[in-house]
Structures are given as structure tokens and as C-alpha cells.
């Protein structure tokens, strides 16, 4: 491993929400990359091969929502762990790719961090 800290990519269009979770994750010892939409996220993933986990919101502006992003990540970078979050009740769990986890919004940051630790261990 080039880096001892696990690298997490946070994809969230609401900057305030993104900032809060990024701050928490940094405090908890993660190296965090940020993206405001799926397109930005894919660019980051192409240039950062050590990302261990993608944490993405579902409803975002741009060409892809979080579900499609999750599918694309599963397809192109199979080892990357995926956690999907949404405030929408209507997200169907079967739309989320295999071995990706779903966390409803608003989420409990402590629980989220435990899940991230488990997944990046």
C-alpha cells in the first residue's frame, strides 16, 4: 500500500453535507477525495487508483445519478467498495449493484464510519 490511510471518495452535491462528512472522515483517519457529481467522481477515480471506497448520494445533477455511478464503479473498478445513500424512499435496493451497501439519509456518521472501517479493513 502506497498510503497507510484508506482513501475514500465522497460524492455529494450538497456542499454543506459533503463538508460535514468529509471533516468527520478526515478526523477519523481517512484520506478523503470529494466530488459534487458523478462525472467529477469518475475523473477522480481514473486518476486515483488507490481509492478503496466510494460513498455516493443518489440524486445529483449531471449525466448520472448515484445508482448509475455505483454501477459504473462496480463495472470498471470491481475491487472498490460502494456505499449508496439517499433521502428518497423510492430507491429500489435491487437497482444497487451487488456488494454495494445502502444507507438511508440522514445518516448517523458514527455508524457510517464503522461501516467504512469494516469495508476498508
Amino acid at each position: 500500500m502506497a498510503h497507510s490511510k484508506p482513501i475514500v471518495l465522497v460524492v455529494e452535491d450538497e456542499a454543506l453535507v459533503r463538508m460535514a462528512i468529509v471533516d468527520r472522515l478526515e478526523e477519523e483517519g481517512f484520506l478523503v477525495l470529494e466530488a459534487a457529481n458523478a462525472d467529477e467522481a469518475l475523473k477522480i477515480l481514473v486518476n486515483n487508483l488507490n481509492v478503496r471506497l466510494v460513498f455516493t448520494d443518489v440524486d445529483m445533477p449531471g449525466t448520472m445519478n448515484g445508482i448509475k455511478l455505483a454501477a459504473a464503479v462496480r463495472d470498471r473498478w470491481p475491487p472498490i467498495k460502494i456505499v449508496v445513500t439517499s433521502g428518497y424512499k423510492h430507491v429500489k435496493l435491487d437497482e444497487i449493484p451487488a456488494q454495494a451497501e445502502f444507507v438511508p439519509k440522514p445518516y448517523n456518521a458514527d455508524r457510517l464510519i464503522n461501516a467504512f472501517r469494516r469495508l476498508t479493513d
Binding site: V17, M19, R24, G87, Y88, K105, P106, A109
Partner: peptide
């Protein structure tokens, strides 16, 4: 209704972010 639900959830997420900060 869906949009409203989303906004409410979004607002709650913002409140949560402010609270945690």
C-alpha cells in the same frame, strides 16, 4: 410530493451537517 420529500430529507441532512459541525 417526491420533490418535497427530497427537500425535507435534504434539509434534515443540512441540519445534521450543521449539528455535527
Amino acid at each position: 410530493t417526491g420533490e418535497l420529500q427530497h427537500r425535507i430529507k435534504n434539509s434534515l441532512a443540512m441540519v445534521g451537517a450543521i449539528a455535527s459541525q
